[in-house]
Simulated scan of single mutants.
Amino acid sequence: MKKTAALTSALLLGACASPLTRIEPVPATENISQICIKENTKVFMDDFLPEVRKQIEERNIKTELLTPNAVCEYVMSYDAQWSWDWFWTFSVYLSLAEFSVTKNNQQIGMASYTAGLGPAAIGRTQNKIRPLLIELFRK
């Protein structure tokens, strides 16, 4: 009985450690050369938006910030949250990232990341969002 309880506990802890990702890629038929990004002023990490733009532009898609007068066929919105790791490293880590791509106000792609528990959650933000953006804009 003790072995079964220990094995069950280990499996549950292992499952909690894995990040959860969900990606619905932009259809390959969409030839995006430029995308407007709707800035989320509630995201307080200064380097998040520049990193997102950099990674999208690495995929040969020009980015610009959405302005009230902008006419943009493709728009991306995002959200991100950070949490404190009080147990492993006593540092801040990306705990949630969400991206949504719309064309003419209809969602055509999305990606989300939710960190798991434990040391696997710790790491550079750019490395956490790179797989999301690669898959979101894959062709």
Rank of each mutant, 00 (worst) to 15 (best):
K54P: 01
T21M: 15
R130S: 02
T21P: 00
A15S: 12
N60S: 15
A10R: 11
A97C: 07
I37S: 07
T67Q: 13
W88M: 01
L12A: 13
Y78P: 15
E24W: 03
L132H: 01
L117Y: 05
E57N: 14
P119S: 11
A115W: 04
P119D: 09
F48S: 06
W88E: 09
V26Q: 03
V43I: 10
W84R: 10
N31L: 09
I32Q: 04
T29Y: 00
L49C: 09
P119A: 09
T89G: 14
S9I: 11
M76A: 05
G109A: 05
N69W: 01
A6C: 01
T125H: 00
M110T: 11
L12R: 10
V71Q: 14
A10S: 14
E30A: 14
S33W: 06
R59M: 11
I35Y: 07
I129K: 02
I122L: 11
G109P: 07
P131S: 09
G14C: 08
Q81C: 03
A121H: 01
E64F: 14
C36K: 12
M45K: 13
G109Q: 07
T41H: 12
C72S: 15
I56Y: 04
Y74V: 03
K3E: 13
S33K: 14
I37M: 09
D85N: 12
M76L: 15
